[in-house]
């Protein structure tokens, strides 16, 4: 764990900041798109060569042994996922492996090792991507209907919204009851609610 703490340590951050600011400046837009959480839900196979060589693991975490996660696939089967210092962990936000718990849902991208373990490049914990309708708006939560399933979306400080395909903003005041909303979030197994990370409406 010491290297992870070191990585987020102030000295390390200052060093990396200097490295970034003294690096190359690249100006310009591209339509290549992300490798991030959205890629976890990409329907079509990616053209990105890094993705083509990757393997994916999806399921529920049944055990944690050191830095290895035991995963029971939701379509059956069993996988072992090796976490490394270079593995990114998403659980509603970028975080560390310390927050992963037994029972969490997991989606991981990584590389197959000869011993059958998947060395993870990135894991997304409890990530959900839901097509919903907004049924109610309160101070710190949004009531959503997903199919005929009612669920509560928790609004957090860093919840962001996209309106009609525009860039993400922290302004949630343009959400309306009755709107259809695509919700990317982190499922909370304890109370079956969803922490809303990104809500997209009007697109």
């Amino acid at each position: 764990m010491s290297t992870r703490q070191d990585r987020s340590g102030l000295g390390r951050r200052r060093f990396l900041t200097t490295a970034a600011l003294s690096g190359a400046t690249i100006v310009g837009a591209s339509a290549l798109g992300g490798l991030d959480a959205d890629a976890a839900f990409a329907a079509e196979p990616s053209l990105d060569p890094a993705i083509a060589k990757s393997s994916f693991v999806e399921g529920r975490i049944t055990g944690i042994t050191g830095s290895i996660l035991e995963v029971a696939g939701s379509q059956g089967g069993h996988s072992r996922v090796q976490m490394t210092n270079a593995t990114s962990v998403w659980k509603g936000r970028a975080t560390t492996a310390a927050v992963i718990e037994i029972g969490d849902g997991l989606y991981a991208r990584g590389v197959d090792m000869p011993d059958g373990v998947v060395a993870a490049d990135a894991v997304w914990v409890n990530i959900v991507n839901l097509d919903t309708q907004i049924r109610g708006i309160a101070k710190n939560r949004i009531h959503l209907a997903h199919g005929q399933h009612e669920l509560v979306g928790n609004v957090l400080a860093d919840t962001s919204a996209s309106y009609a395909g525009r860039g993400l903003t922290s302004d949630l005041s343009r959400l309306r009851i009755g709107q259809h909303a695509q919700v990317l979030g982190a499922w909370r197994p304890s109370d079956d609610s969803v922490d809303v990370v990104r809500i997209s409406v009007g697109h």
Binding site: R7, I26, V27, G28, A29, S30, A31, L32, G33, G34, L35, D36, A37, D48, P49, A50, A86, T87, S88, W90, R93, A94, D121, A122, W124, D158, S160, G167, L168, T169, S170, V197, R198
Partner: peptide, 28 residues
């Protein structure tokens, strides 16, 4: 802007396109 908006901007940038073959993880 929220961090997610910065990530979104990055992923739509030429810099991301240039670095994509090297990047393996998601946001650390």
């Amino acid at each position: 802007v929220p961090v997610a908006a910065t990530v979104e901007l990055l992923e739509n940038s030429l810099a991301w396109q240039a670095a994509a073959p090297v990047v393996r993880s998601a946001l650390l």
